[in-house]
């Protein structure tokens, strides 16, 4: 089971000022972007700059992802080959389809062999941004054992569908639901598309709530100012955490007394309820990095 990232912050790959400060915003993951954020005649420069950045900084506490150019372009393969040497945690494959994932997998395999990296230590997230991608998402996931999750690219997807993107996001309902379900089925993370109006924090909060309710495990961000709302949205509410802690504590006590079912505040707690409570605490642990479940056994 891989770690879940509440937030993934896009950082333009040819902007030294933003790259060197990327770690100060406490994003769970950073996406250094060699694709859309970089103009055609700076693709080579951005590739080198991000390579040098990966060599120099560890960007902790954030995890490092690099979005390469599409693998069917002249830059895409070169991106993977160059960047791979500096061992990013994850490659984000744009315009993902089964072929692109297969290509990326093979390239990474060679890099890992050549550089003595642990096999499959460089992971893949598939950026699905077409109708075709949504429909063959199962094959995309199965295309490589490195795939840790899917990121939905809402702008390109709606363009491909020839439909309008709206602030409410009803047009994304199917893609979100399908990809979230699929990711849940395979134990992967599903990261929701970024909210494009960086000045509308209220709209973002609504959009995060929508993504959470449909089963997303995280959301991409295009501006550090969006991170707070995203983190808030993907963290369980304080009241839930409180409830879960109480359930787990009482459960352990009940177990010592040999009881399998008990009541808490008048409501029955059985195995599935306990499992849900434990899951909430684990989620918080993963995010906060502190131990909440007291394993006394």
């Amino acid at each position: 089971m891989n770690r879940f990232y509440r937030s993934m912050l896009f950082i333009p790959g040819n902007n030294p000022g933003m790259i060197q400060n990327a770690s100060v915003f406490d994003a769970d993951a950073l996406i250094f972007d060699l694709e859309d954020a970089v103009s055609i005649d700076e693709k080579d420069a951005a590739r080198v700059l991000v390579s040098m950045a990966l060599e120099t900084f560890d960007f902790k506490p954030s995890v490092c992802i690099v979005r390469v150019n599409p693998l069917d372009t002249v830059w895409g393969r070169e991106d993977v080959l160059q960047i791979g040497k500096y061992h990013p945690d994850i490659i984000l494959v744009p315009k993902a389809d089964p072929e692109a994932i297969g290509t990326c997998h093979a390239l990474l395999q060679d890099i890992e062999k050549e550089n003595d990296f642990k096999p499959e230590s460089i992971r893949i997230i598939a950026l699905i941004e077409s109708a075709y991608g949504v429909e063959c998402a199962t094959e995309i996931i199965k295309g490589s054992s490195r795939v840790d999750g899917i990121l939905l690219g809402g702008e390109d997807f709606t363009a491909d569908m020839q439909i309008r993107r709206t602030p409410e996001g009803r047009e994304l309902f199917y893609a979100r639901t399908r990809l979230a379900t699929l990711c849940r089925a395979y134990g992967l993370q599903f990261i929701d598309t970024p909210y494009t109006d960086v000045n509308d924090l209220e709209g973002l909060t609504f959009d995060v709530r929508e993504a959470v309710s449909l089963g997303a495990t995280g959301k991409a961000a295009i501006n550090p100012r969006q991170l707070e709302a995203i983190h808030r949205g993907f963290e369980p509410m304080e009241s839930d955490v409180h409830w879960a802690a109480e359930v787990v504590a009482t459960w352990q006590q009940a177990k010592e007394e040999g009881k399998g079912v008990f009541a808490l505040h008048g409501k029955m707690v059985d195995a599935p309820v306990f499992a849900r409570a434990e899951k909430i605490l684990k989620q918080v642990e993963a995010v906060r990095g502190e131990e909440l479940i007291n394993h006394v056994e």
Binding site: P16, Q20, A45, V48, L49, M52, A53, T56
Partner: peptide, 14 residues
């Protein structure tokens, strides 16, 4: 910073 200087020199040489 140094990493940027290095990257720009490498790119110019390339």
């Amino acid at each position: 910073l140094d990493y940027t200087i290095k990257a720009r020199v490498i790119t110019a040489v390339n």
